[in-house]
């Protein structure tokens, strides 16, 4: 069986590569400086901004963030790797976050998760081949009164039953917020969805997760 793998021979940061952060992104990061006592404190906002723009935070992006904040790249990597929200490799256009904590488990969350896995043919941390969806689980999303809960990008779906899943996944507006957005942070934009999708089709990095990669290798 042929199987795809991440190219592990290529260095993750190429010295002469063109910058991945545009001037606009750098300016947006800098616009947070007056809020804090130090530049380093802008790191979390910066990581959100970069992930919203590029879809994920590559090693190259981390070194460029370090440049803007005038800190060491290692500090950026250190912080990035601590938080589960940040992706260091391409993800799907929409991230499905299923709650796995106690109220949701008591109300059928595990069955909902299994249905998603089956429908999309991916495991946790996986991304579909077409780059549309990535799947993760998280602890309590503070929506326990509406258990079981499912976040699709920024949108919270409440009392999601296993049988609702197929219809929900084909709904193109399943990530649209009902309230007015603040423009302080951009939505995870369409752009990168397409980018992840194209990665999924013709390069080696798409449609993979450590779990499915191992399975395919077997």
């Amino acid at each position: 069986m042929s199987w795809k793998a991440i190219d592990r021979n290529q260095p993750v940061v190429e010295k002469d590569a063109a910058p991945v952060l545009s001037d606009a992104v750098r300016d947006k990061i800098r616009s947070f400086f007056p809020r804090y006592e130090t530049k380093r404190a802008v790191l979390l906002p910066a990581l959100h901004i970069v992930q919203n723009t590029l879809g994920y935070i590559s090693w190259q992006a981390m070194t460029e963030i370090a440049e803007v904040l005038e800190i060491h790249p290692s500090d950026v990597m250190n912080t990035t790797s601590f938080y589960t929200h940040f992706w260091t490799h391409p993800k799907g256009e929409k991230v499905l976050t299923v709650c796995r904590s106690i109220s949701c488990e008591a109300m059928g969350g595990a069955k909902m998760l299994d249905t998603i896995k089956k429908e999309l043919g991916i495991d946790e941390h996986g991304t579909t081949k077409d780059g549309r969806y990535s799947l993760v689980t998280e602890e309590c999303l503070a929506g326990c009164d509406h258990a079981p809960c499912l976040l699709i990008n920024e949108k919270m779906h409440k009392c999601v039953k296993a049988e609702d899943i197929p219809a929900l996944l084909v709904d193109v507006d399943n990530d649209k917020l009902s309230m007015e957005r603040s423009d302080l942070f951009d939505p995870p934009s369409e752009e990168k969805g397409k980018q992840a999708a194209s990665v999924g089709q013709d390069s080696a990095i798409g449609a993979t997760s450590d779990v499915s990669e191992m399975r395919e290798a077997e």
Binding site: T97, M179, L184
Partner: peptide
């Protein structure tokens, strides 16, 4: 605000 509070972020920021 916890990162998963997206909708709440927009309401509060407004």
């Amino acid at each position: 605000l916890r990162g998963e509070f997206h909708e709440q972020f927009h309401i509060l920021q407004k």
